[in-house]
Amino acid sequence: MAELAVGKPSGEVRKGVQAGISIAIGYAPIALTFGLLAKTTGLTIGETVLMSLLVFAGAAQYISLSLLTLGTGIFEIVLTTFIVNIRHFLMSTSLNEKWEDEQAANKVILAFGITDETFSVAAVREEKVTSGYMLGLISVSYASWVICSGIGHLIGANLPQTLQESMSVALYAMFVGLLVPSMKKSLKVVFLAALAACFNTIFTLTNTLSTGWAIVVATLLSAVIVEWIESVKSRSRGTGA
């Protein structure tokens, strides 16, 4: 009985680690490049690793470097980071619904590790999400991010050009790999993804919204529209119309 109680959560950690391996692979080239760019921007290795350790948000970290190069003030950089990362609010809200843990402290700590990638992997999991699973998933992704940032700064060189270019598809391919199995099972998922993809493409290409807001607005619009259509359909079916 005691063994069972101990054995189950650690099994969840292991499953989380396994699920996190594709994230770790995808983060490696991005973090290496981040380390390299941070070096050319003039950050020390300590500052580079500190940023990856504390912020753990790829897009925002890249943007901060280009803003530093432009001589932008700290306040504006922090504000931009906030706008770029506001989408995580939506992701945490969604994940909170399927993540069960009586111990509030676990979620408070692990919330630090919610990224586009860890969220996506956890959110499409068929079973409920547990803190053990999140711990495994986040640890392996975080380790890859922090260590590769440091290595990138240390060696100050990229992967071979061809490999670097090819690996830039990694995280996108992972998102596709996470999405398609659900698309095959449900037409609703196909509509949700396609609609959000269309909105985001329009917002991005027309420059109506910055990247941070574009993803949030596209996601919300799609999620609300599809839910609304479904509720109208089921209501009309319910009244026999």
Binding site: S94, V169, Y172, A193, A223
Partner: peptide
């Protein structure tokens, strides 16, 4: 709750497009 259940799939659509088209 229904909307929040939709969020992961909509997010994935928005994370993939148009980003994947501009990796190079």
């Amino acid at each position: 709750q229904g909307i929040l259940k939709n969020v992961p799939y909509a997010t994935l659509g928005a994370l993939i497009f148009p980003g994947i088209l501009f990796i190079n």
